[in-house]
Amino acid sequence: MTPAIKIEQIHKHFGTLHALKGIDLTIEQGEFFALLGPNGAGKSTLINLLAGLLRPSSGKLSVMGFDVVQQYRQARHALGVVPQELVFDPFFNVREMLRFQAGYFGRGTENDPWIDEVIEALGLADKATTNMRRLSGGMKRRALIAQALAHKPPVLVLDEPTAGVDVELRQILWEFIKRLNREGHTIILTTHYLEEAETLCSRVAMMKQGEIVVLDSTANLLNHFPGKNLRLKLGSALPQSLSAMLRNEENGEYMLALSEVTQVEYVLAELRSANVVVEDMQLIEADLEDVFVELVGRK
């Protein structure tokens, strides 16, 4: 089967900055894929290259088998992009914007039932005739997702779709995106909320300084990272002998990183010998955030 996305040896230079350094990546149809990385890692640059908003310095990108430069019309038909910024056209209402967006892709009134469906599914029905300017931030975010879907693309790219979005809306958005994925859409997500990527995505690429440093299934990454975290609430300060294990300290609670569970005994022994009282203790499984910090931080 043709991959949804195929990226081969992509380099991108902005003047002297080498923003992408030979990215290779294949995303199969139907995948729910996460593209993670710190700010400036090159995630948005890669998405903009896929969308044709930027041109590669060298290398090839294709969407559903169509080269994004040579066969840009077919490639763009196959791709919907939800941009990171809350951009909108202040002259039109939600339904008009969606109709225009579908029209740009050659779709006419026969597409209206799909637009109605998207409006309904994203909870925009009572705002369909409201001017984009008058929508709240959350509603604008929904409208952006609806716009990316207006032409029914098989591949959907969401660039930080839940940035600044409240919990309730986040749940609505993810239910809808999961439904699209079940219906066969390929979803590519960038997010800073790593728990979202862990819950939703079957495969993860982690980027750093223009390179993919980790590419694996979410399950593999979590399995191959046996570490755990120990959260402690102490009666006094953490002994110096344990400071090397300290991951963070917040409101008098210490989070220690354990490479294996047997280290709990060592921690407790050190606390006892320093006469530090343990008020509360919790052993926590490593999550994608730990994997991210460990792998991306190290590499």
Partner: peptide, 17 residues
């Protein structure tokens, strides 16, 4: 206006030549 507001991308993302 489209450039400053950023909504120019809605056209740039399309197959319009």
């Amino acid at each position: 206006q489209s450039k400053v507001m950023g909504n120019i991308i809605f056209v740039l993302l399309t197959p319009i030549s």
